[in-house]
């Protein structure tokens, strides 16, 4: 994690981020953010002349102790800078939605990731209730990818 990039990030994102840590084994930095700050940080990163983060590679959701953690893997096609924006949302109960801001206006390719995460993890981006097209009927609304959803292998019924 080159320090020049970290200082640059601290300068332009003063006070908006909680902390900067190395992601995984430390190739590139990951910025822990507040849920509300996500949109403004994303816009700043995109317009910044030095960074110009204009592409999103992957948005993955993981359920850890801090709740559902959304990690946006973003990079810039111009300056080859790679970043990870991490935000955590605590689900109130097992079956109701978690509210999260949507970044479609900043990075348009996030749309498909958000639809799927909305359906599997029960995250409503910008208040839209996820329209279910991945899951079969009996599992809709149960948000199967959450740790709370226990999956039993269906018994093999031997038909007479």
């Amino acid at each position: 994690m080159d320090t020049k990039l970290v200082t640059r990030l601290e300068k332009i994102l003063r006070g908006k981020i909680i902390r900067i840590t190395a992601f995984g084994k430390g190739e590139y930095p990951s910025l822990w953010l507040e849920g509300t700050q996500m949109l403004s940080v994303a816009e700043v990163l995109k317009e910044d002349p030095l960074l110009q983060i204009d592409r999103l590679e992957n948005l993955s959701a993981v359920e850890m102790q801090e709740g559902i953690v959304l990690s946006h893997f973003v990079y810039s096609s111009v300056t080859q800078v790679r970043l990870v924006l991490r935000t955590a949302f605590l689900p109130v109960s097992e079956t109701d939605l978690v509210q999260a801001p949507s970044l479609v206006r900043v990075w348009s390719m996030v749309q498909t990731f958000e639809d799927e995460i909305g359906e599997l993890f029960g995250v409503a981006f910008d208040g839209q209730v996820p329209q279910f097209n991945l899951l079969p009927e009996q599992v809709r609304g149960l948000f199967p990818m959450r740790k709370s959803f226990v999956f039993q292998m269906p018994e093999a019924q031997f038909y007479e």
């Binding site: 590679e57 992957n58 993955s60 993981v62 359920e63 850890m64 990731f113």
Partner: peptide, 8 residues
Amino acid sequence: FPGRIQFS
């Protein structure tokens, strides 16, 4: 067992 595996 894995915590989470996500493919993009």
